[in-house]
Design a protein around this nucleic acid. Structure first.
Length: 928
RNA sequence: GGGCGGUUAGCUCAGUUGGUUAGAGCGCCUGCCUUACAAGCAGGAUGUCGGGGGUUCGAGUCCCUCACUGCCCA
């Protein structure tokens, strides 16, 4: 084991090497099973596919670190673990990216035409589309790269088409003219989810509409005066006394005359939507440009008058406003109204406006022909699946959020007026206007047989194809040769449902909810591996959903480009190493809370990595010495520990017992998604127990004196050191895969028992002997050492000077001190141990409930400081005693509290009493 | 407007179904260049658990209320 490790840990050297090794060796590939009923236990997880246009951000890094920890952990626990990566074609985002590029060349997509433009996007994707996955490789993600998919590749596209056609045939897809959220920049409809609402201070305009009969007027209130050109009515509440007499009358709509024609006349009607307390109580009705007005229009059979085009410019040939942008039109209309004396007043008004998530532009509600999914039947199953517990949410509160949304769901607008995406497989007939929906490109209209058909130009919402991923990546639909129904594939049989989905709450509705709806809908038709009919509990796309928080900056601010506080993970990785960043994220990832990413913490975990590195150097150094001294040093099989003879030193029995407990704790924590607790348990064990105590004590046992015969204690300690260390590396490896891989390979001197530490067994509690007696003895010994160290410090004993100590205690402690004089000497510079029959109260003594200990040193302690300390302690003990007394003397407490609480309190009371008496005596002994 | 969180040490956060004297990391103070590690070692200080009220033998934990704060939906 003459592995030479550099003195300081340098992640940049090792991380790249192992990242490449893992991919090159296909260590995490899981081949498709031979049959459809592969019985091994599976852990399957789908990577939320990043946009091809994406760049890695801290959110991805958290998401992937968590997934990787869980995947590696499950893999090491013996489950067939499959993590499937891929990217999303991201319709709008990608199209915009390429359009921006074209713009720099002074071109538009229309200049190129649809086919050439789509080709250009593909070319862009070839060049840059892999960037984010390349970045992902640096994170050490243990994914199966052989299964990498793209949502528009040849395997997935036919499945998307199949899903659309099936839904259409089932009557769950319809097309119609409805008000949708229109993005005038991207020039496409977007779904409700893609609209973000923002409170903005705007204006409420009160405008007078004269009655057509000249008998008066009515004043309406609106935030959008420009849309009055599309008004078809004025609405008042049926109960509103002010307007009872006006209901049914006509008003003359100002500014509406085109080509010198007179202004249009529109009715005043009664509708509940008009709220008497809003504005004047009278509102204008513009069905083609407002969702609520559209509903009013439907109720009253009003015409729909579209007055804005796709780019939100007024479309009204012959009108003086024709061609104006919506905001320019607003200004002009307001000015014209004022000129005509029809503008009554303008009030400040705050209202929520809709912004396009993609372009940031104000959404224009617009009436247009779109394709929708009739969502209720799908939502019903999705609600049932979660209600019945077939899908478990962590944190649980998201179950409610999900449920709430599902129960108030609206039909899903799935068509987008884009060029980049899955083109809707529908053809319009020019002859009879019928629609032919087909898996194959049809040659003629299915209704009238005309050959004059053209394909629908719209594409599908990106989330439609990603919503299908949990089954399409495993080969759905695979139609059965006889029935044509989707059939099981070996991959589907083995890996569906997936085990877990890890994601941020921001795509809970976009993606998670859609996968649940589409999964429960489509997979119910696919038989189970044993041939039986699939039930809802096995049709779900995943069994669990873990939702993590947001990664914020150190000041808890949301990271945003405009604030300039975005942390680029690659920068941080280059400064501290991937392992340290992963560990930081894990240690702060407590379910339900956001992460305030702190560089200070990352620095701390880089120090941790360095600590482990140096522990390895210590180990290697001693193995070399052992060899030179004639010891036989061969690595044991990974995961086996030496048997411990009766005379095994205390600290060795202790450390194995601790490792056993920590292994149990880590398993429990990860099962509960408590990444923070798991990380902290390992950190504490490695640093606070293994390095601080065990390594130091091992130095005492390792005897390589020249000429000495090999001795069994040295041999056992060395074997234990290596065994514990190797186990700890395995325990840590899901969190810090690079560092552990590097050291683990070095430990085996190029002949490792597996190709990677990631392919070995995860440490389990039962792998190591638990020893409660050793743990409690070690605890006492540690207390003794720490107490002596503190005393020495206070007495001003120079660090290097050894001093004798006196102990007064019970037999157990005395025997412990007596038998571990060498330990005390090494750890607390104790030169000799004497025993006293009387309790020790001098100023050079300290007491615990178990023992009194005094350090023999001629210089006196700082009496003032000591008195202060004792007085403080005394007050604390008094308070503790008082509160314990109060309870112990309380009959209700004694009769109601469980026995173990009462016993515990009694024990604590007794111990505190001892401490109190001792402190009191010590204080008295100090005199004045 | 409807809903969901949060408020614990200087900072960032833990704190299981109420149960003994509330923890961690970082930071801070003191002393150490101890041959694995100064990215280290040893010792130390720091909290009326946001305010008020209630339930209980017992509340950081449950209930009510107020304040501040973050988010989601409309």
């Amino acid at each position: 084991m003459s592995q030479e490790l550099p003195k300081a840990y340098d992640p940049s050297i090792i991380e790249q090497r192992w990242a490449e090794y893992w991919v090159r060796e296909h260590l995490f590939d899981v081949p498709t099973p031979e049959t459809t009923h592969d019985a091994r236990k599976k852990f399957t997880i789908l990577l939320p596919p990043p946009n091809v246009t994406g760049r890695l951000h801290m959110g991805h890094m958290l998401n992937q670190a968590e997934m990787d920890i869980l995947t590696r952990w499950n893999r090491m626990r013996g489950e067939t673990s499959l993590w499937v990566p891929g990217t999303d074609h991201a319709g709008i985002a990608t199209q915009m990216m390429v359009e921006r590029q074209l713009k720099e060349e002074g071109k538009t997509r229309q200049d190129l035409g649809r086919n050439a433009f789509v080709e250009k996007v593909w070319a862009w994707r070839e060049l840059y589309g892999g960037a984010i996955l390349d970045q992902m490789k640096r994170l050490g993600a243990s994914v199966d790269w052989s299964r990498e998919y793209f949502t528009m590749d040849d395997k997935l596209s036919p499945a998307v088409k199949e899903a659309f056609v099936r839904l259409y045939e089932q009557g769950l897809i319809y097309r119609g003219a409805y008000i949708v959220n229109w993005d005038p920049v991207a020039q496409t409809a977007v779904s409700d989810l893609e609209v973000e609402h923002e409170e903005r201070l705007g204006k409420l305009y009160h405008i007078r509409y004269p009655l057509a009969d000249g008998s008066g007027s009515i004043v309406i209130a609106t935030t959008r005066p420009e849309t009055m050109l599309g008004d078809v009515a004025v609405a008042v509440n049926p109960t509103d006394d002010r307007y009872l007499a006006l209901q049914g009358k006509l008003v003359r709509l100002p500014l509406s005359g085109i080509n010198s024609q007179p202004d249009r006349e529109i009715p005043i009607l009664a509708d509940d939507w008009a709220k008497p307390e809003f504005g004047t109580g009278a509102v204008k009705v513009t069905p083609a440009h407002d969702a609520n007005d559209f509903a009013i229009g439907q109720r009253h059979n009003l015409p729909n008058l579209t007055i804005l085009d796709e780019t939100a410019h007024v479309l009204l040939p012959g009108s003086p406003y024709h061609g104006l942008d919506r905001y320019a039109a607003r200004e002009k209309i307001v000015a014209d109204l004022e000129a005509q004396g029809l503008l009554v007043e303008i009030k400040e008004h705050t209202n929520a406006i809709g912004l396009s998530q993609r372009t940031g532009v104000v959404i224009e509600p617009r009436l247009s022909q779109q394709w929708f999914i009739k969502i209720q039947p799908l939502a019903d199953k999705a609600i049932e699946a979660v209600d019945k517990g077939y899908i478990k949410f962590t944190p649980d509160q998201y179950r409610k959020t999900y449920d709430e949304w599902m129960r108030n769901i609206h039909d899903w607008c799935i068509s987008r007026q884009l060029w980049w995406g899955h083109r809707i497989p529908a053809w319009h007939c020019k002859a009879c206007a019928a629609i032919t929906v087909s898996r194959e490109t049809p040659t003629h209209c299915a209704t009238c047989n005309s050959t004059d058909i053209t394909q629908e130009t719209d594409v599908l919402d990106t989330w439609f194809s990603s919503g299908l991923l949990p089954f399409t990546v495993f080969g759905w639909p695979n139609p059965n040769a006889d029935t044509g129904m989707p059939d099981l594939t070996p991959d589907l049989g083995a890996f569906y449902p997936t085990q877990l989905l890890v994601t941020g709450f921001d795509i809970l509705f976009f993606w998670v909810a859609r996968m649940i709806m589409l999964g429960t809908h489509f997979m119910l038709d696919v038989p189970m591996p044993d041939g039986s009919k699939r039930e809802l509990k096995d049709a779900v796309p995943f069994r669990e959903v873990y939702i993590h928080g947001l990664v914020r900056d150190a000041n808890r601010e949301k990271m945003s480009k405009t604030k300039g506080n975005v942390i680029n993970p690659i920068d941080i990785i280059e400064r501290f190493g991937t392992d340290a960043v992963r560990f930081t994220l894990a240690s702060m990832a407590s379910p339900g809370t956001d992460i305030a990413f702190s560089e200070a913490r990352t620095e701390g975990y880089r120090a941790f990595a360095n600590k482990i590195w140096n522990a390895a150097r210590f180990l290697f150094m001693n193995v070399d010495r052992a060899r030179e001294a004639g010891y036989n040093m061969t690595m044991r099989e990974s995961g086996t520990v030496p048997s411990l003879p009766d005379d095994t030193p205390l600290e060795t029995r202790w450390i194995f017992s601790r490792l056993s407990a920590v292994s149990a704790e880590v398993d429990r924590a990860l099962a509960d998604y408590r990444f923070d607790e798991a990380a902290n348990a390992i950190y504490q064990f490695f640093w606070g127990e293994f390095c601080d105590w065990y390594l130091e004590l091992a130095k005492l046992r390792l005897d390589f004196t020249e000429g000495a015969e090999p001795n069994p204690t040295t041999a056992l300690t060395l074997a234990s050191l290596v065994g514990i260390f190797e186990s700890a590396l395995r325990l840590l490896s899901p969190f810090m895969p690079f560092l552990t891989e590097e050291i683990w390979h070095a430990l085996y001197e190029g002949k490792p028992p597996a190709k990677s530490v990631a392919l070995t067994r995860y440490p389990q509690a039962a792998d190591f002997p638990a020893d409660p007696i050793a743990e409690s003895a070690m605890k006492t010994l540690q207390d003794l050492i720490v107490t002596v160290r503190g005393l020495r410090k206070e007495l001003g004993v120079p660090e290097k000077e050894a001093t004798p100590i006196t102990i007064h205690a019970g037999n157990r402690v005395l025997a412990l001190a007596d038998g571990n004089a060498d330990v005390l000497s090494r750890m607390a510079r104790v030169s000799a141990v004497e025993f006293a029959t009387e309790s020790l109260t001098g100023s050079n003594a300290r007491s615990t409930a178990e023992f009194d200990v005094a350090v023999i040193y001629e210089r006196q302690i700082d009496v003032v400081a000591e008195r202060e300390r004792l007085t403080k302690d005394l007050a604390k003990y008094e308070k503790g005693l008082a509160s314990a007394d109060k309870q112990l003397n309380n009959e209700t407490f004694m009769s109601k509290a469980p026995a173990h609480i009462v016993d515990g309190l009694r024990k604590q009371h007794a111990e505190t009493k001892i401490l109190y008496d001792k402190a009191k005596a010590a204080l008295d002994a100090l005199g004045n």
